[in-house]
């Protein structure tokens, strides 16, 4: 009976979503934003990251493994729910569904994006401005990336709200409403950063 495993896994899931994954997303989008200042600025940002010490270790420990766990466990959670949005059209219920939908879209997007960039790098390609400009020369890819970025950003912003509830930080309705507004501001701000950066490659 006393089985606290899923309690601990749930907690880990919400924690990893913010630290390190959420922080990484913010960092990544900000680094991309360098592209708005021209190819050189972007390339030097990439160079700087690639020269970070213990890079491979950091990549696995802070990015790949947390994302893998968050994604697999998240899928398992998402498919345990039975959305009832046509019957209950409340705001938070719509967010409940969107959180799960954007999670799945983000996973597909991230898998494809990693294949196009990081895995190609492992095969010997160079990650730089031209690589992204090349990828985004395809109009279909522009749409795919825009949807992917918006999904990831939404999932993160609304995830901050859920995190605060899951850890018992926002308890009463007033603080939760405030967190709702805050999370939407984060969504708008990060969407701007993400999309602006993406269109710099187009």
């Amino acid at each position: 009976m006393a089985n606290k495993k899923s309690f601990a896994l749930h907690k880990l899931h919400t924690l990893l979503g913010l630290f390190p994954i959420g922080l990484f997303v913010v960092f990544h989008l900000t680094a991309n934003f360098q592209a708005t200042k021209g190819p050189e600025a972007f390339n030097s940002a990439v160079q700087m990251i690639e020269h970070a010490p213990f890079l491979l270790f950091l990549e696995f420990g802070l990015i790949y493994l947390p994302i893998l766990f968050h994604a697999i466990y998240g899928l398992y959670l998402a498919f345990q729910g039975k959305p009832n949005n046509s019957q209950f059209k409340y705001y938070r219920n719509q967010m409940y569904l969107l959180q799960r939908v954007t999670g799945v879209i983000t996973l597909i997007f991230v898998a494809w994006h990693v294949w196009q960039t990081r895995i190609q790098k492992a095969f010997g390609a160079e990650v730089n401005f031209d690589m992204m400009a090349d990828i985004l020369s395809n109009p279909f890819m522009i749409v795919f990336y825009a949807v992917g970025i918006l999904s990831a950003v939404f999932h993160l912003s609304n995830g901050i709200w859920s995190f605060l509830v899951h850890w018992g930080i926002t308890v009463g309705p007033r603080s939760q409403r405030f967190a709702s507004i805050f999370s939407m501001i984060v969504f708008v701000a990060l969407s701007y950063v993400g999309l602006r950066a993406m269109f710099a490659f187009v």
């Binding site: 899923s6 309690f7 749930h10 345990q80 729910g81 938070r92 219920n93 967010m95 409940y96 509830v165």
Partner: peptide, 10 residues
């Protein structure tokens, strides 16, 4: 238990 709540707030 409690961790199965998905915050739909219905």
């Amino acid at each position: 238990g409690i961790s199965y709540c998905g915050n739909s707030q219905n």
